[in-house]
Design a protein around this nucleic acid. Structure first.
Length: 679
DNA sequence: CGAGCTTTCAT
DNA sequence: TGAAAGCTC
């Protein structure tokens, strides 16, 4: 009875229930299918592919030491590839671990149906979450709509998250010679050069993830609450890319961190205890992102709340480009964007700063920004990024108020009080005194001169003034309400479908070619040719090669500064991370020790005889009953934009039912009233 | 000590 | 904005 263990974003041998099920069942074929075209707009970006490549190599060598290897397949259709594999190997079982992004939900469901129809026993497991989304509900069995309620419930569940499983001691390999392997190509020649630097700062792979975890728990975790506001990322866990690819189990993270917390609680170490709570909260946000995606499978491209449906987003490629290049004239924003481009990494706080600037000050459609994050972040994660951008855009029931603009100048002094972060990533501002570092436009001419800065020449003036942004936002909102009212009136009169739909039905595709030829000087206050569109726009398709060409375009000072920044990456990051490496090595035996000492907890029987209950809950029949959890109809990317996106039927039903059953939706109305009264 | 004022921070 | 935490007299 040989089985296929289908690896996806669970690239580890420890605490991997699918792998363990395979090992128990007999000979194992461990498989990874590379089918990026299935992801549509969201094919992994350059750095993400780099990570994947290395992580797979790491997994392969681990599997080899256990007795088998990783079979790699290049495919445009994962399910067909699995089916072929079943036929060539004679495997009778398929095991995999759950994923919760919209595309995986559909694909995995199909895999189950198709392979079951071919007589294969298919079983799937939870390996990515503390609790399955369908297990966390309110007293009426309905899903939560706010993070805090969700997380409170998670922390007070009657059963603990499953204790992590030990890795198998040995794997009996299936006859690998019966299957052909495809070499997988994750980077082209040009990308190799850019990627070379990444290896100096990051080590993908499950055992490195383990080391990163140990290092974090024994170091920065203690001061997590104190340091979490610093833009310099030395105090974060650096676990997010590891977690994204499932190199470390979130349940292991949870248990180890919890044990540390108990220890600190006994010592009366309040700061440590608090640090753990905060860190666990960020783990909780990751959980919540999957939860949202499962319950609202379109959250990566459609707002959960519909109240911004008529918002006139500013369609300005100049703004978009200035933002990407770190040339907005706001040092904290620009430093963040340069760091992101150079390293694929950004501290969580800075992600909030740059994305909030994007949405509120530039008023660009959030999905563009999300797509750029997706293309450039090392830990790009569809569910987490969707949660983040929706939160910033105020389209979640517990998101930020839309009319509140954060001032990058003040945030600069909060997160980077001495300007070190800005100086590292914006060499052109390096000589500017701290007093002016976050608002150079106010600096006296003599100061600027002494620092070698000529605003508008080697560093831009603010692309939009904050005050201008505020009034522009108010105007846009009142325009939105007018449109909304008009639309409602039209619907009530029974005439047509409402005003908005005429503009909305025009699909707005991102203007790819415009970007290339644009001049590099970012748009200024006069907002040239800023068009507004009344639809939350389509995702721009930025291929990585396209981005690369653009950024390496010979040009003014940006090129030099970007290059300098990039050259600086390994040095900077190494300084921060080197000490970790040292502690790491000492940490290894300790980890091994800890692995064996996980408390073996007893779970209420019947709740957790994992495979069957999860497999059942995951099937479409049970999902259809779930509110908002209708299995999305997935269409292949070749057919262009999924029609449900434009057709809006799904979107409206998601958001209107959402509004109906969510009490806080009233706040949208109140908020609107309030603003029009004061403004 | 604690009423009132200021600052911080939101998922 | 508003709740919580911090600060002052």
């Amino acid at each position: 009875m040989s089985s296929i263990v289908w690896f996806r974003r669970d690239l580890r041998v420890e605490d991997n229930p699918a792998l363990l099920a395979g090992v128990r069942a007999g000979p194992v074929f461990a498989v990874f299918v590379w089918a990026p075209e299935e992801e549509g707009h969201y094919q992994p970006g350059r750095v993400s592919r780099w990570w994947l490549k290395n992580s797979l190599a790491h997994l392969d060598s681990s599997l080899r030491s256990l007795g088998t290897c990783l079979i790699t397949k290049r495919s445009s259709d994962s399910v067909s590839s699995l089916l072929e594999l079943v036929k060539s190997t004679g495997a009778t079982q398929l095991f995999f671990n759950h994923l919760y992004d919209p595309i995986s939900l559909v694909r995995d469901h199909r895999a189950k149906e198709v392979l079951t129809a071919h007589g294969v026993t298919v079983r799937s497991f939870n390996a990515d979450l503390l609790y399955e989304p369908w297990d966390v509900t309110d007293d009426n069995g309905r899903p939560f709509n706010t993070f805090s309620a969700f997380w409170e419930k998670c922390l007070s569940m009657p059963f603990d998250p499953e204790a992590p499983l030990l890795p198998p001691k040995r794997i009996v390999s299936g006859d690998v010679l019966t299957c052909t392997m495809d070499p997988l190509v994750f980077e082209d020649e040009l990308e190799k050069g850019s990627n070379a630097l990444l290896a100096r700062a990051w080590s993908p792979g499950w055992s490195n993830a383990d080391k990163a975890l140990t290092t974090f728990i024994n170091g920065p975790l203690l001061e997590y609450s104190k340091n979490r506001r610093k833009a310099d990322s030395a105090t974060t866990s650096f676990l997010s890319p590891h977690l994204h690819f499932g190199e470390v189990s979130v349940r292991k993270v949870f248990h180890l961190v919890r044990m540390k917390q108990v220890l600190w609680a006994n010592e009366g170490n309040k700061a440590g205890e608090e640090g753990v709570n905060l860190f666990l909260k960020s783990i909780g946000l990751r959980e919540y992102s999957r939860y949202l995606s499962f319950n609202h499978p379109y959250s990566h491209e459609r707002p959960l709340l519909g109240h911004l449906k008529f918002f006139p987003w500013v369609v300005n490629e100049g703004y978009f480009k200035a933002w990407r290049q770190g040339r907005t004239g706001y040092p904290l924003v620009d430093a963040g964007m340069r760091e992101l481009w150079a390293t694929g990494w950004l501290h969580d706080r800075i992600r909030v700063v740059v994305s909030s600037f994007f949405v509120k000050v530039l008023q660009l459609p959030w999905r563009w920004g999300m797509k750029y994050f997706w293309d450039t972040l090392l830990d790009a994660d569809l569910e987490s990024d969707a949660l983040g951008w929706q939160y910033i855009s105020g389209t979640l029931p517990d998101g930020r108020e839309f009319d509140r603009i954060d001032n990058p100048q003040f945030e600069g002094y909060k997160f980077d009080p001495n300007g070190e972060y800005v100086r590292r990533w914006l060499p052109e501002l390096a000589r500017l005194p701290t007093d002016w570092i976050h608002h150079p436009w106010n600096a006296p001419e003599s100061v600027l001169q002494a620092a070698g800065i000529e605003l508008g020449s080697n560093y831009p003036l603010p692309i939009v003034g904050i005050d201008a942004a505020k009034s522009r936002l108010e105007e846009a909102l009142s325009e939105m309400w007018q449109l909304e009212a008009a639309s409602r009136a039209a619907i009530e009169n029974g005439t047509e479908e409402g005003l908005g739909d005429s503009t909305e039905s025009v699909p707005f595709a991102f203007p790819q070619d415009i970007q290339m030829e644009e001049n590099l000087e970012p748009a200024r206050n006069n907002a040239p040719a800023a068009t507004r569109r009344y639809q939350d726009q389509m995702v721009p398709s930025l291929t990585s090669s396209f981005l690369r060409g653009e950024h390496e375009e010979p040009s003014s000072s940006l090129r030099t500064s970007a290059e300098e920044s990039r050259a600086e990456v390994p040095r900077t990051v190494n300084i921060n991370r080197e000490p970790q490496r040292d502690t790491l090595n000492q940490g290894i035996p300790e980890t091994a020790h800890n692995e064996n000492s996980f408390p073996q907890l007893n779970f209420p029987m019947g709740l957790r005889n994992a495979e069957d209950s999860t497999a059942e809950s995951y099937s479409s029949s049970s999902r259809r009953e779930r509110d908002g959890g209708v299995v999305p109809v997935w269409s292949p990317p070749s057919s262009g934009y999924p029609e449900q996106f434009i057709g809006d039927e799904n979107g409206l039903s998601v958001s209107s039912s959402y509004l109906q059953r969510h009490p806080r939706s009233h706040q949208i109305v109140n908020w609107r009233r309030r603003l029009s009264q004061t403004g």
